[in-house]
Design a protein around this nucleic acid. Structure first.
Lengths: 149, 149
DNA sequence: ATCTATGCAAACATTTTGCAGGCTG
DNA sequence: CAGCCTGCAAAATGTTTGCATAGAT
């Protein structure tokens, strides 16, 4: 199964990075790769608890932290809560301002709001674009360190 | 002065919406339109307090809420805190993953990561695109209400 | 004069931390 | 078997709320 494969890859990545694979982490990975929702920490806690009844919220936070740090999942931060997604391919997050649902939309290079409306009926009212990276100052600092080593 | 003008327009908008223009709100608007930083609530509190010493944090939150609700400012939510900006023209938020600084980049229709690097030396490592609007279900609901009224 | 907005502090929700013991490798 | 990871509960952080009073219109 495709998802099973994806989870196994994530486990390998964790192992390689020196982390242990516990039942809790497995279960959290399972849930994250299988859901299309963009769950928050508490939602993850509730869902995974069905499989791991003794799970604690702190463990969820710990695991999410580890996964984020290692680039295995991404954190979306909405106005009131943090959500997580395991879909790392580039896509547009469609955020409904009415019900709060988040969908992913696979984007081509020149995807436009019209494409989104035509294909899945999502009505775009506004958008936001973020680039993450290094500002010129920080890049200069990083370059210096890199050159000297 | 341009900024003064912008603040006055925001005051008018608030007045039209039935809000009162208090010294605190004026001062907060003043600060928001004048800064290029993307301050969080506490930063705003600290800065505006220099002008309005009796200002309370709750008032800052209240005002930010009112301004956001009325579309006069936008909230950026980062991983750990919420930031605000009064720049409503479309632009790309350049978020430095090293120092956390946020800059705005005026974007054309086809701005690319290369443009950003060439023009201001920001090195793009990743990006995120969000569309905000109505999902198909919510749109259907809104249409029904609209038609029956 | 009216009624909203303020300041203060307590309430709240969410995330992090510290410690003793269990489990992975 | 060693040391990381877990669960629990308490601590820390950021935001909201309730109430009496000041202040805008």
């Amino acid at each position: 199964m495709e998802l099973e494969h994806k989870r196994q890859e994530m486990e390998q990545a964790l192992r390689r990075a020196g982390y242990r694979i516990t039942g809790q982490r497995k279960a959290i990975l399972d849930y994250l790769v299988s859901t299309l929702e963009h769950p928050g920490a508490y939602k993850i806690f509730e869902e995974v608890k069905k499989v791991q009844p003794r799970l604690s919220l702190a463990t969820v936070y710990n695991t999410l932290h580890v996964l984020t740090e290692n680039g295995l999942i991404k954190m979306l931060t909405l106005r009131d809560d943090n959500r997580y997604e395991s879909n790392l391919c580039f896509h547009i997050n469609l955020i409904c301002t009415s019900c709060g649902k988040i969908q992913d939309f696979e984007a081509g290079t020149h995807t436009s709001p019209e494409d989104v409306r035509e294909k899945i009926g999502f009505e775009v009212m506004g958008y936001r674009m973020e680039y993450h990276g290094l500002c010129s100052e920080c890049k200069a600092g990083a370059d210096q360190k890199g050159e000297s080593g």
